[in-house]
């Protein structure tokens, strides 16, 4: 399996998934169901998580398909330019959804976050739909309507260029000598922040530090989420600046896989019942311990495969 396969597997998730999450949120508001609202927030988080490989593997698909007869590079770039904004708004929506879940678990209401999620998810839906349509037009002429052809679409795209393109963001990284080392430093500092909190929270679930209840360590989770956000931004900047280093890199594929498990474990420890009810001096149930072990192992995997990008893979 290559990263291009992963892109084909996941490229409908942001559009269809966001639509499902919005539908769940609307139904929860109509039915005044707190449980359904929680589920919609969880779906927003999972969709944001899956959008990460959906976006990054697109670069691998681009390298595979560009320069082939009948494939327009202009349309591929338009798809990429739309995707980077859809990705950013999707991550913002997922971030607010995570914060609302964390606050609700602690008994708060997070009204501001809910409002932000409603607005951001609507924007994300529009951006994802446009991205999906532009992506489809690259290789599916059957969706061209009203006698459109590739030349007409290229001309239309040229008359209405985006304010900031993915290429410009890439050049921002590669043209400034200070940016890569600064972001690399921040990437490692944020990694320490994430892993520190992950270790404390999940070692507690595995039976260490029993003097603390899980809700006591649960309040630290936003620090891990902040680290995650920093690494998402810095990591995406590296990838946009030097896509060739990641697009066909086996180690990056494994890193993405570990990141998905790590993200899901963060959702579990943030929002689910199992860990929350582990009080001071108590032992966590076996299934909760299993998630704790998976969380630590997956973050170790993220770090290992990240470090091995140049050795197992072809980066740098």
């Amino acid at each position: 399996m290559t990263l291009s396969h992963v892109h084909l597997l996941l490229n409908h998730v942001p559009t269809v998934g966001t639509a499902i999450a919005i539908a769940l949120l609307v139904i929860s508001l109509i039915r005044r169901s707190d449980e359904l609202k929680r589920v919609s927030l969880e779906v927003f988080f999972v969709i944001a998580l899956l959008t990460l490989p959906a976006y990054t593997t697109g670069l691998a698909a681009q390298i595979q398909i560009q320069n082939r007869p009948g494939v327009s590079d202009v349309m591929i770039e338009a798809h990429e330019d739309a995707a980077i904004w859809a990705f950013a708004f999707m991550q913002l929506t997922g971030g607010f959804a995570w914060f609302a879940l964390w606050k609700r678990r602690r008994g708060g209401l997070a009204r501001g976050s809910m409002l932000a999620i409603v607005l951001l998810s609507a924007l994300t839906m529009m951006m994802s739909a446009r991205t999906a349509n532009l992506g489809g037009e690259i290789r599916h002429p059957e969706i061209l309507v009203g006698g459109e052809d590739v030349a007409a679409i290229e001309a239309a795209l040229a008359t209405n260029p985006p304010m900031i393109t993915a290429n410009q963001i890439g050049l921002l990284v590669t043209d400034r000598t200070w940016l890569w080392p600064a972001f690399e430093s921040l990437h490692f500092i944020a990694m320490c922040l994430i892993f520190g909190v992950v270790l404390i929270a999940n070692l507690r679930l595995l039976g260490l530090f029993k003097v603390w209840s899980f809700p006591a360590v649960h309040r630290l989770l936003p620090w891990a989420a902040l680290g995650f956000a920093i690494n998402m931004i810095t990591g995406m900047m590296f990838m946009t600046g030097s896509p060739g280093m990641y697009a066909d890199n086996t180690s990056f594929l494994y890193k993405l896989g570990c990141l998905m498990i790590a993200g899901l474990s963060l959702l579990y420890t943030t929002a689910f019942e199992g860990p929350w009810w582990v009080g001071a001096g108590q032992d966590a149930p076996r299934r909760v311990k299993l998630v704790g072990a998976a969380a630590i192992a997956s973050w170790l995997g993220v770090m290992y495969f990240g470090r091995m990008l140049p050795f197992i893979g072809n980066a740098f």
């Binding site: 708060g108 200070w178 600064a182 430093s185 921040l186 500092i189 309040r219 902040l226 920093i230």
Partner: peptide, 30 residues
């Protein structure tokens, strides 16, 4: 030398901003 100074400044400023955001979020914990 100039490069190291810029990198250090960017990292320090970002760390301070992130710490401030973290402290602000922590206020929602109780």
């Amino acid at each position: 030398m100039q490069l190291a100074a810029i990198v250090t400044a960017v990292v320090l400023v970002t760390v301070v901003i992130v710490a401030a955001i973290g402290v602000a979020i922590d206020r929602h914990a109780d």
